[in-house]
Structure formats: structure tokens, C-alpha cells
Write a protein that binds this DNA or RNA. Sequence first.
DNA 1: AAGGTAACTGAACAAGCGTTCAATAGAAAG
DNA 2: CTTTCTATTGAACGCTTGTTCAGTTACCTT
Lengths: 204, 204
Amino acid sequence: MARKTGSSGEKTARDLQIAATKLFARHGYAAVSMRQIAAEVGVQAGALYLYTPDKQTLLFDLMRSHMQELLDAWEVESGNFSDDPKALLEGFVRFHIRFHLKRVDAVFIAYMELRNLSDQNFSTIANQRQAYENCLSKILKAGVGAGVFDLVDLKLATFSIIAMLTGINTWFRDRGRLDSETVEHIYLDMVMGVVGCKSRRRPD
Amino acid sequence: MARKTGSSGEKTARDLQIAATKLFARHGYAAVSMRQIAAEVGVQAGALYLYTPDKQTLLFDLMRSHMQELLDAWEVESGNFSDDPKALLEGFVRFHIRFHLKRVDAVFIAYMELRNLSDQNFSTIANQRQAYENCLSKILKAGVGAGVFDLVDLKLATFSIIAMLTGINTWFRDRGRLDSETVEHIYLDMVMGVVGCKSRRRPD
DNA sequence: AAGGTAACTGAACAAGCGTTCAATAGAAAG
DNA sequence: CTTTCTATTGAACGCTTGTTCAGTTACCTT
């Protein structure tokens, strides 16, 4: 049969992305077959090629749109803060944790499947990642300039902070020992330590 | 032909580990075939089964022996330090960086291929990883007890430090901007920040 | 009701997969 | 030189892979 009765017309394209994200995250790009993805969508394998030219492009589109959403979301969020570096850094840390905990699967893929991208696709994603790192670097640089942060090396601090924040995704579980608000609070404190922020512990 | 002329008798077993480590790290476990590994060793695919019962066990043995070497190496190294928490933490940080930069491929596999392990194999590796995390947690706990570290949450600090240190492996290159001694120095400073060490900046 | 169109199936393709094993080659032992 | 033994080959096994496509189904438009 074709086109499930009535309902929405643009469902399957999005369904494919959702199914692929789930399966790639769970088992890895190379370990998942187009037939498995098709089964998850509820369709035969051939039908997938109406929505993606091939498996590689499917992975690439997943990663690229995830990174783009991340960049766009920070673009919006960063407007909410004054240009006080400390407030900006707090905003970034909280944003990063919240955004990444909301999309565990896509984040996982974006970090683990880089080696399965073709050279050209890889460099696109690498550029997006660098753009995101630059968002943080800019904040840190401003803080150092204002004398409120104390950093030996800007680049390494950027890497460190992003690595420790993204690491949350590997252990955090909903309804675990800590809720995400508490996690934000604790990590904010540690990040302030990394950047050698003078007034580290907040007044409350 | 069989048994290449003279030379060493126990070569191929180790060669297999080396070849598999290299290829798994480069392309991922699922994306590498036994025939590719065999070609890297310089042998036909069937011959590999003289040295491993199957592909899954090959991966597992790689990961388990890597983790065991890590644990053993710290067991030895940690003897070199007094029980001053600050000295111990410095020792741990320097050890971690040095050890991990010497085995980029094995480290990469140990972090990326967990999902390709059978349930039982996974729990073995997970235990080893936890044992390593405990080494750091013990140091931090002692430091908090001695009043020299200031931490909101012990477990999260452990995760943070390990994540930021292991992150070095993703960007460090020999003959890059910084040599590994400098990297150790900078990360030590940032780690001292994370643990809220009172006398953060060292005298030199 | 008829015709058009977009969505989807199901079979097929060549290639590659992990793994097994009878046959063989080459060194060691007698 | 012959036998023994071990390491290795190379072909074969059944199965799965990504991808294509002629054919079919179900809806929309007229």
C-alpha cells in the first residue's frame, strides 16, 4: 500500500531522521543497515531512497542539521545576556548543558561518527564545530581582557570546558541522583575554577 | 607458504593486536573486516582464527588489556608520591596525559567501541573504567578531607577532570604548537582550578 | 468514473561479511 | 630421507550489505 490514510503528508522524511538518529546512536553508523532503519520507520528499504540519496548523506544531514541548530540556538540565547564576561560564561555553560541533555542521541552521533564522513563532509562538520568553539573562546578572551578571568592558554581552556561539559552526556540520567538544574550549578562552579575567576563562589 | 623464515616465533599474535588496534581506531570496529585486518598483518583471513576465536573477542581483548595496563601503570606510578593530595593530584594529571598520549589508538577504541561489546564484555570493561575513576576520586576525597581542595561534588569533579584530560587526545599533535610537557603544565593549572585548590598557581 | 501522480513494494544485483576446513607447505625431529 | 607437526592457504558456506527499478497501490484532480 502507499501513503498511510490521511493524517500528515510530510511525515516520513522526518521519521527517517528520527529513526536513523536513534539507531546510529544506539549501534553506530556502520553497524546499522538501511533495512533496520526502514523497519524502524515502518517501510521497506527501497522507500528510504525517496528521502535520501544514500546512507552517507543521511548521516551527514543528521550531523550538519544538528550542528546548525546548536549554532542557531546559541545565536539566539546569547542575546539574553549583557556583555559581562562572567554572565556570558554562565549563560554559555547553562545553555550547553541544557541543549546537549535534550538531544543525547544527536550529540553522540556528532562526536562518534566523524570518521565515517567523507573528507568533504567531514570538513563541513569540522567547521561548524570550530564555529561553536569560537563562541566560547570569544567569551573567555573578553574575560581575560577585562581581567576577570585568569587563563594560561585560551585554546586549551576552550577545549577543556567543552570536553568536561559534553562529558555530562555520558553519565547523566533523568531521575538520577542529581537533576539537571543542580548539575548546571555544580559545573558552573567548576568552570569558574578552570577560568580562574576571581569571585568564584557565588553569593547565594 | 607457512611460517616466514626464521626470525621470531611469537610475532603474529602481537601483530594481530597491533593491526586491529590501528584499523579499529581509524575506521571503527564495525567498519573493519577480518580480511582488512589480515591484509594489514600480511596473512589470509582464515589465519587470524589461530589467534582469536572471533572478531568480538579480538575487540574485547584489546580493550581489556589496554585498561589493565592503565590500571597497572598507575599502581606503579602512584607509589612515587607522598600522600600529600596536591602532589598526588599533580602526579595523576601528569601520568594520565603522558599515558594517554602514548596510546592514542587504544584510548580511542576504549572510548568509542563500548557499544560494540556484548553485555558481559561490556560490564568487565565498565568495571575497569570505574576502578580507574576511583583512583582519582580517592585523591580528591583525601584532598577535601585535608581541607586543601574545595569541591561541591566528588563524583562530578572526577568525571570532569577525566573528561577534560582525555579530551587532549582529540586535538594534540606531535610537533604542534605545544609540546606535551607544556600541555601537562597548563592542564595541571586548570585541574587545580576545578578542585578549587587554595594555593593554585605554583611558585615557579 | 477516468486519468494522473506520487508513494511504496518486493525482488533482484553484485559485493562483501564472519567463519570453517580440507589441503598443503615448510621446518623440526628421527 | 621420511615422518610429524604446526602454521597457513584458498576456496567455500550461508547471509547480509547498499542500492536500483519495474511494477503496484492508493490517493487527488478533473
